[in-house]
Design a protein around this nucleic acid. Structure first.
Lengths: 152, 152
DNA sequence: TCCTTATTGCGAACATGTCGCAATAAGATT
DNA sequence: AATCTTATTGCGACATGTTCGCAATAAGGA
């Protein structure tokens, strides 16, 4: 039953926030159901669908609140607005294509070499969780270069 | 003479844009003189200083125009607004600290391993010119961890 | 000097959030 | 169940950063 998950969410909300309101619950449920890739605006729309009359500012405030207690997080995807996701999303990083706007998930270990290298050379801790890696996806690169020179 | 550089800029403007207006020239000069790390807003201020009465929208439009013809470019620095720089800025990449907001330049070759790796595994061309690498600088990391455990 | 039209300045519109405040309602206490 | 405290909501105003329409101006060629 989908109820099981909802109950678990409510339980976590009870532990982590002073009050469990319908608005807050619905916002968290929406983020978990539609896992990832939801802007604040998308969420206002989706939450309004599920619970008509919710104020946008309530959504914004709850996104902050839920993020503060560690239930959700957001990622900046290139030029697009930030997208919200459950905190336990598996820990992948993101590639975002500046041409078509599409995103793909990559394993953390792909970026760990650069992280170690930056730590060693500059003492800098790179954080690819909070900002996606921007660039051009393979399809758009091929399209740009013209199909002919596909191989290289 | 500072005139030499100005004349060169005007010459390039003549080639690349239909009309060389005082506003356009001053905007480009400001970006070149104060090389790097200027937000659009900073530029409105600086340009107004040099040529009072310039409209903010003129600055915005010229930033686009100058970028379109390849004379300048902009970089997104973490949560801060984008910063404009001459197109021929030397080609370094940027690290931006999410805690103190400071930035540092790094050599492109630091990131080239990750770029090659992403190209090989995902066919993705990462572009670190247009988005800085976000994270925590060494000072802020030390401060956060408490000075005691500095070594590790 | 005249003419074409790119460019400017202005103010309105926009997008995305944030904030103050009175009204509401969770959840503890009785 | 009634009461009470105060976290949370909804609302509308505000903030920020940027874009846009449009009439007036001015660059640069004829």
């Amino acid at each position: 039953m989908t109820d099981t998950r909802s109950e678990e969410l409510v339980a976590r909300l009870k532990e982590l926030t002073p009050r469990v309101t319908p608005q807050r619950r619905v916002i968290l449920e929406a983020i978990c159901d539609l896992d990832g890739h939801l802007s604040a605006d998308d969420l206002v729309a989706e939450v309004t669908r599920r619970l008509p009359g919710v104020s946008p500012s309530t959504v914004y405030r709850n996104l902050q609140a839920l993020e503060n207690v560690g239930l959700i997080s957001h990622v900046h995807m290139g030029h697009a607005v930030a997208q919200y996701q459950p905190a336990d999303h598996g820990g992948h990083h993101h590639l975002v294509c500046g041409t078509c706007g599409r995103t793909q998930k990559i394993d953390r270990k792909t970026t760990s070499k650069l992280q170690r290298s930056l730590a060693a050379s500059h003492g800098f801790e790179a954080d690819f969780d909070h900002f996606a890696i921007y660039g051009t996806c393979s399809e758009c690169a091929q399209r740009r270069d013209g199909r002919s020179g596909a191989g290289r």
